[in-house]
Design a protein around this nucleic acid. Sequence first.
DNA 1: GAAAAAATGAGGAACGTACCTCAGAAATAG
DNA 2: CTATTTCTGAGGTACGTTCCTCATTTTTTC
Lengths: 349, 349
Amino acid sequence: MRPTVIDIAREAGVSLATVDRVLNGRPGVRAKTVQAVQDAITRLGYVRDVAAANLARSRTYRMAFVLPDTESQFVQTLLDALDLAGRMAASARTEIILRRFPAEDPHALAAILTRLAAEDIAGVALMAPETPIVRDAIRSLHQQGMAVVALVSDLPNTERDHFVGIDNIAAGRTAAVLMGRFLTGQGQVIVVGQSMLLRESIERRFGFDQVMMRDFLQVEVLQTVESHGRPQVLRQIVSETLSHAANVRGIYLLGAGHRALSEALADLDLAGRMVVIGHELTPHARAALEAGRMDAVITQNVGHLVRSALRVLRARTDRVPIDESQEQIRIEIVIRENLPARAETQSDL
Amino acid sequence: MRPTVIDIAREAGVSLATVDRVLNGRPGVRAKTVQAVQDAITRLGYVRDVAAANLARSRTYRMAFVLPDTESQFVQTLLDALDLAGRMAASARTEIILRRFPAEDPHALAAILTRLAAEDIAGVALMAPETPIVRDAIRSLHQQGMAVVALVSDLPNTERDHFVGIDNIAAGRTAAVLMGRFLTGQGQVIVVGQSMLLRESIERRFGFDQVMMRDFLQVEVLQTVESHGRPQVLRQIVSETLSHAANVRGIYLLGAGHRALSEALADLDLAGRMVVIGHELTPHARAALEAGRMDAVITQNVGHLVRSALRVLRARTDRVPIDESQEQIRIEIVIRENLPARAETQSDL
DNA sequence: GAAAAAATGAGGAACGTACCTCAGAAATAG
DNA sequence: CTATTTCTGAGGTACGTTCCTCATTTTTTC
């Protein structure tokens, strides 16, 4: 049988109340006694039964996910994953609260964060660009004892507890290696981004250029063209760039826009004739891979992102260590041949 | 507040005992009453608190992992992951029992499986080749109510409940695409396997050939050379093959043997001059990637494998549905640029 | 409509932990 | 050495479930 608190009390020669004080870090125990209890714990190999503990605490975890109200497919897949995770988490006393904020409005975001503080929430997962006002809001949440994790987009200069996401510089480097090797020989590559104000885009581009300039000097990487999230704009500037540059053989898509790009290439009758590499495995990206209109997608598993954020928030709330290796989000390379089966919608319970 | 069984009883106008009978599928309740209770459950949106349930059941999960006693680095990384998972699982009333069997001895394996039956074990994760005697042993375990999952190597013709691992044909196809595209142009590829008796090797080779013959006809894929797990043999036959075949430009390693291959190539002064693609991210493979002696590794995340096996076994034991999307093991492509940071050994609690 | 069978209710103990109160013991200060 | 402060013990209740038992009610059967 696994040892329980009762066994520890007996082993340490103290009462159950004292064991409890030690286990939960409550004051009023002499250092000597603490030591005796801890010795007993290690001697017996006691491991706290977290299920029973949470039950006794009657602790329920309310975790807020704060995401931009962008309509992008990436955010949509994230929402789907969140929905699924929410249903699974319900049986583990965890409730997910979703908040959206206007994408370009840091003040609205700060207001939402401030309002969260009044809602008895244990932790917040936040996907947002870093601005001074957001920094302040995070500090304030933190001071109120909430756990805060940055999701997808890191907030390195804030007091976030953890970053759940990938190293985007490495992701850009990965894209570059594939681009360089798939191209075979010289040519031009155009880089398409939504907006170079986004931290991810900047980092990916940086990593991409690093490797291109080191290993693939025969390839010329053109200036980033920005779509500002509008498909028509993307189509137009891609067409334009292609009519000027003579030897474009690859396209690197820094973020969303798979669909618009596919359409632009189809218009120009170039579908399948270019090496196309992009990020995020959205439904459009998946379709493009399957159809051979796209060569590789660098992605992060959204299900993993959401579950990892939840686990980290829970661990922080419980003041329990996390399994680093489990929380490390992989930079996944997806080509047609290793495309995971379409995630089915979960059958209802 | 979340509704509890008491709320359901009140809502359905029945007693707690009846609710319990319905929830746990115990007999002695009229269909009409069952319906009334279920209606109440959906009306209130009740979700069973599994933590409390398990506590009450005082159920502890003893899960056995049965692995070959091979010394391969892949098995070793699996053991490491298992060890870590074991420590994390301890606080969730789950105990991991490890059994090793002599790799080439199906009778010894069957004996171990039979002995497990007497040990009050809830589920078994098994990594072994499929043989008739193993099939029988699994059937027998199953009849005794144990959950059985196949790990890494599928056992499709047995009564296993689930397979935790990757589609090795797809993995081979993935390797082929990378090989074909990285090679750029014509040449020969040698395929090195441990033993073509292993199901994984066969499937990977099959997938590899499929794609090679469809998309990369300019590449000639030579016969598989078998190392039988002995590094010296591998070195010798690789050297030999290379001295006969004039235009070898790529090497595809079906399974273990990263180290021996690296040494063989170093001997022949070919390190870094070939496209080398292999499977399983072992420490040697990692080192080879970092040093540029290897171009890509197709792998599966061992931590994920182990945790997934545990989750599936638990779910089967609890007769609870699993989150399919979470249990799908990805075919990961690893190159130097997206190599995950070395998993640190977990700090002690 | 009586006897048998089936369904239901009431209540309680248990799982392992948290957290509370209050009395009493031990250590420390003066 | 006493007064005060600090520690410790004993005991209880609670968390949401499971799983008993036994009595009582309802339904079915002949």
